[in-house]
C-alpha cells in the first residue's frame, strides 16, 4: 500500500487536473463516502453526446482525489454512453498500483460520481458490480 504514494499520485493530489466548476453544466452529480467523509462533485459540458469539458471538486484522501483527477483526463472527448460503461479497471489502470480492499471505495468514489452524472441517477459502486 505504501507503493501507492508515488510521485504522480501525489502530483494529482496536490495539483488536481480539471479542478473547479464549469460555466455551462449539462450533467452533474456528487456523492460522499459515508465511511470516511470523502466528497466528490463532477460537472460535465456535453456536445452532441460527447464530453466536451469536465470539472471536479471535493475533498478527501490522496487516493480519492488523485483517482478523480486522473479520471477527468481520461473522459474528455469520450461519448457519454461510454462514460456510463466505464469499469473499475479503468481507474485501477490509471492509478497503476494495487489498492487494498479497505481503500477501494476511496479509489472508486470519483468513478461512481462520474457515472452517476452520465446516467442521470446515482450509480452503484463500481467495485461491487
Amino acid at each position: 500500500m505504501d507503493d501507492f504514494y508515488r510521485d504522480y499520485i501525489l502530483d494529482h493530489y496536490r495539483h488536481p487536473r480539471n479542478f473547479g466548476h464549469l460555466e455551462r453544466i449539462d450533467a452533474q452529480a456528487e456523492d460522499l463516502n459515508p465511511l470516511c467523509g470523502d466528497q466528490i462533485r463532477m460537472e460535465l459540458e456535453l456536445d452532441d453526446g460527447v464530453v466536451k469539458d469536465v470539472r471536479f471538486s471535493g475533498k478527501g484522501c490522496a487516493i480519492s482525489q488523485a483517482s478523480a483527477s486522473m479520471l477527468t483526463e481520461r473522459v474528455k472527448g469520450m461519448k457519454l454512453d461510454d462514460v456510463a460503461k466505464l469499469s473499475k479497471d479503468a481507474v485501477l489502470e490509471d492509478v497503476g498500483i494495487g489498492i487494498s480492499p479497505t481503500r477501494m471505495k476511496c479509489a472508486m468514489l470519483g468513478l461512481r460520481v462520474l457515472k452517476s452524472a452520465a446516467i442521470g441517477e446515482l450509480a452503484g459502486w463500481p467495485d461491487e458490480e
Binding site: A62, I63, C106
Partner: peptide, 21 residues
C-alpha cells in the same frame, strides 16, 4: 496528508490507528 492516507501508511508498519470522523 489526509488521515486515511496516514493510517494506510502506518498500517504497512503494523500500526493500527483510527482515521475519520
Amino acid at each position: 496528508v489526509h488521515a486515511h492516507d496516514l493510517a494506510s501508511i502506518l498500517d504497512t508498519e503494523g500500526i493500527c490507528v483510527r482515521a475519520g470522523h
